[in-house]
Design a protein around this nucleic acid. Structure first.
Lengths: 343, 343
DNA sequence: AGCCCGGATGTGATCGATCACATTGCGGGC
DNA sequence: GCCCGCAATGTGATCGATCACATCCGGGCT
């Protein structure tokens, strides 16, 4: 086993780590004064504070967070509830939340619900509750997660990622809708009239938002509703659903994420269609790989890290900053006017 | 702000959650008996245990982990030290570690070192120490991380992912080397004699292992050492370094991961080279997308989730199981014999 | 019958921090 | 010269669990 040092019997008999009392004794003050130093109490003579700080350093003192949590009943733990976090988006959001949390003195504990079933979601949630997490960031939210959060007597404040505001049960993910409209509008403006949609996993809020944006934009432009096929965010599902859409004779497809768009590119290639000459493709997310697909993918950029940061800020009531960054369309080489003049 | 319920004044005056004492009173036993139920003490009359369990249910009792950690001085927290965890591999390993840890009653706290610099690594590590994590899983290990772990009087046991055994400072990542050899051997057997290597980020252990495997296999086959170019694991870096390798006239490239291989495919395309006719490419990892690259990528499969599980098992001293799964080469469409007969 | 043993349960101390409240000392206003 | 008030510090209680040890009780052995 890989192990870091034994720390055997070097030195005296001390095994336990130093406590406030040890520091107090070393500094010649009371434990309470040590506590005051820890908590930046205003009325402390600078000389006293310094003595205590020196003693802390000498003893290599580290406050025991469990003891602190016990008496303050504040765990300083932020929970992250996530599903299938192998994906690029969720993973980078998690990292951003962690960084932001740590900067504010919080720890981050994760709980992955391995399945979409209510049981595993409840278990993950229960785990965070047991930790007495002070807040929960829900990454990659599915509808079931939301119902679990709102149902039961659930006391812990939470935020869901990429979601602006909760209006009594109705989650509005405005920027997702906007992004989808942007992508669809781009295809419309290129002259496409038969535009398909490759949707994300059925019960995901983001999938619903992007689909809604797609439909709304088509409707506003007076373009007939296009065929839709359901994927599960993965490239293989994009390949499968992409074949279906291609079979239905679309000239362009808006894919709900980049991975599925990749599968779609593959399917198009296998079907003998050239992208973008025969088929235009727009993705969503702008993963780091999207610029290197063949052809490089036109997609909607989404800043997952920023979303994570904003989510945490909102959770900790540091609201009031910029409402949300507008999504941006990144035009690359996977989109072009349709092959035949639009009918 | 998205918020889950206020929990205002519904019911009595109770605000604090139920403790062992509350449960004890409700069940008509002592707090110690409640504690015994919690800890599965053998000498407990079934009837008594049941009474206590009923009381727990009635009061919706949840043990306070901070209190428990305080007295037992066991935090039941596993720390994860990671860098740039937006990548597919690290992210899926984290998820696997979390699942395995939770199944054993542990929580998982993450700490991302945002940079490669020693400071940010130390900070992340210090954070896990403050949490009094009982063990640390190092994901995506860089050399600096290892030195930080072995240096200082570091008492917390740790394991590094995809690393089999630590023999006094020398980390051996056998399966990584094996995988790289596998990939290189495949190219050699196809008849390639000018094989390049697209290496991962310089200070990563995995990058070193794969490079070592590449060189070792070439040497064993009596093939001249091929050109090597350094990337940073990302697709853009693969594009850049790939151009360089192409310029140096290789007929095949072994890329240290799939994302860089994608960049390489892109570079080859831009250079007018057909893959695999003019250039063969082998990746590493077998990300879910690799099967849908154009052409589908030949790569070395690596089970990140299994690696995460094994790492945790090792950390918790459940050693002795299967030493490690051998890496598997997945042959797809990005490799073929070299264009001209090998000289 | 008396004794001892161990199963079943209770009592008080403890972990390491903060909180609530008490105490000291010094300076200024009247 | 006295007293008030506030800055600076100390004392004891507390959070909610486990640990160490004490107690009670019934049954088998001699």
């Amino acid at each position: 086993m890989t192990d870091g040092g034994t720390g055997g019997g070097a030195g005296g008999t001390r095994v336990r780590a130093a406590s406030v009392f040890d520091v107090a004794k070393a500094a010649g003050v009371s434990h309470q004064t040590v506590s005051r130093v820890l908590n930046d109490h205003p009325s402390l003579r600078p000389a006293t504070r310094q003595k205590v700080l020196d003693a802390m350093r000498a003893l290599d003192y580290r406050p025991n967070l469990a003891a602190r949590a016990l008496v303050t009943s504040r765990s300083r733990i932020i929970g992250i509830l996530s599903t299938s976090s192998g994906e690029y988006g969720p993973a980078s959001s998690i990292a951003a939340v962690e960084a932001a949390a740590r900067a504010r003195g919080y720890s981050v504990s994760i709980a992955n619900a391995d399945g979409v079933d209510q049981r595993s979601i409840d278990e993950a949630l229960a785990h965070l509750v047991d930790l007495s997490a002070e807040g929960i960031v829900v990454i990659a939210p599915q509808l079931q997660v939301l119902s679990a959060l709102t149902a039961r007597s659930f006391r812990i404040p939470f935020v869901t990622l990429q979601t602006l505001r909760q209006t009594d049960g109705a989650e509005l993910a405005l920027d997702q809708v906007q992004g989808a409209r942007l992508a669809t509008a781009h295809l419309g403006e290129l002259g496409h009239r038969r535009i398909g949609h490759l949707a994300g996993a059925a019960d995901w809020i983001d999938a619903a938002s992007r689909r809604a944006g797609f439909r709304a934009e088509l409707a506003e432009r007076g373009i007939a509703a296009g065929p839709e096929a359901d994927g599960d965010w993965s490239a293989p599902s994009g390949y499968r659903a992409g074949r279906e859409l291609i079979g239905r004779g679309v000239t362009a497809v808006f894919s709900a994420n980049d991975q599925m768009a990749l599968g779609l590119l593959h399917a198009a290639h296998d079907a003998g269609l050239a992208v973008p000459q025969d088929l235009s493709v727009v993705g969503f997310d702008d993963t780091p790989e999207a610029a290197h697909y063949l052809p490089p993918l036109t997609t909607v950029r989404q800043d997952f890290a920023e979303a994570g940061r904003r989510a945490l800020a909102r959770l900790l009531d540091e609201d009031g900053t910029s409402p949300s960054a507008d999504p941006v369309l990144v035009v690359r080489a996977s989109t072009a006017p349709p092959p035949a003049p639009a009918d």
